[in-house]
C-alpha cells in the first residue's frame, strides 16, 4: 500500500509537472521545474533508490536550474499578458496518445515489492551480483561494484560522453577556454 506521504508526494510532483507545462512565464517555469526535480528526488528516495535521488537532487534541481537561470538572465523576457499557456490541439492529440501508451504500460508493471516481479522470480542475475559483488570486489555498495567493476566498460562510455558534452559545448559556442585564462 502507498502511504499518505507517498500520495502527497505524488500530488506535488504531478502539480509541479502540470505547472511546468502550462505556465507562460519562463522564469516561473524554471522555478517550478526545480521544485518538480526536488519532488522527484524525494520520490526516488521514497522508492528506496538513494543513488538516483542524489543525482536528481544535484543535477536536476541544482545544476540544471542554475544553467537555465543563467541562460534566461541574459535573454529578453517577454512580458506576456496571459499567465497560462493556451494548449494547442495537435500537441494535445500527441499527448493523449502517449498517455494511453503510458497507462497501458504502467498498469502491466508488477506491484512495488511484489514477489512476482522479474527481479525475484528470475533471481539468477540479480542474486548473482548481490551474492558475489562483495566477495569479488570487497566493496559494500553493490551499485558501485556493478558500475565500476562488472559494468566498468559502460561507465567508461558514460564518462567519455560527459567529457564530450563539455568539449562540444566549447565547439558550439566557438570558444576554446572554459574560463578566462
Amino acid at each position: 500500500m502507498v502511504s499518505a506521504f507517498g500520495i502527497a508526494l505524488f500530488g506535488f510532483v504531478l502539480a509541479t509537472a502540470l505547472a511546468t507545462a502550462l505556465l507562460r512565464d519562463i522564469l516561473a517555469v524554471i522555478v517550478v521545474f526545480a521544485a518538480y526535480s526536488l519532488g522527484m528526488a524525494l520520490f526516488y528516495a521514497f522508492l528506496l533508490a538513494p543513488d538516483v535521488a542524489m543525482t536528481e537532487a544535484a543535477i536536476g534541481a541544482g545544476v540544471t536550474t542554475l544553467l537555465l537561470l543563467l541562460t534566461i538572465a541574459t535573454t529578453v523576457r517577454d512580458d506576456v499578458g496571459i499567465a497560462i499557456e493556451r494548449p494547442n490541439l495537435p500537441a494535445l492529440v500527441v499527448f493523449g496518445g502517449l498517455l494511453v501508451v503510458m497507462i497501458g504500460t504502467v498498469t502491466q508493471f508488477p506491484a512495488l515489492g511484489s514477489r512476482n516481479a522479474p527481479v525475484w522470480s528470475n533471481p539468477e542475475v540479480t542474486q548473482y551480483y548481490l551474492e558475489h559483488s562483495y566477495k569479488d570486489t570487497k566493496v559494500h555498495n553493490a551499485v558501485t561494484a556493478v558500475l565500476a567493476g562488472y559494468r566498468g566498460f559502460d561507465t567508461f562510455g558514460e564518462a567519455v560522453v560527459v567529457f564530450a558534452a563539455g568539449i562540444s559545448t566549447l565547439a558550439v559556442l566557438g570558444r576554446e577556454v572554459f574560463t578566462r585564462e
Binding site: V63, L66, L67, L70, T71, A73, T74, A159, V162, F163, A165, G166, T169, L170, L173, R175, F178, T179, R180
Partner: peptide
C-alpha cells in the same frame, strides 16, 4: 570529469553571453 564539466559548462555559458 563530472565536477570539471559541470563547473566548466556553467562558466562557458556565462561567458558566451
Amino acid at each position: 570529469i563530472v565536477a570539471g564539466v559541470v563547473s566548466g559548462l556553467f562558466f562557458v555559458i556565462a561567458a558566451g553571453s
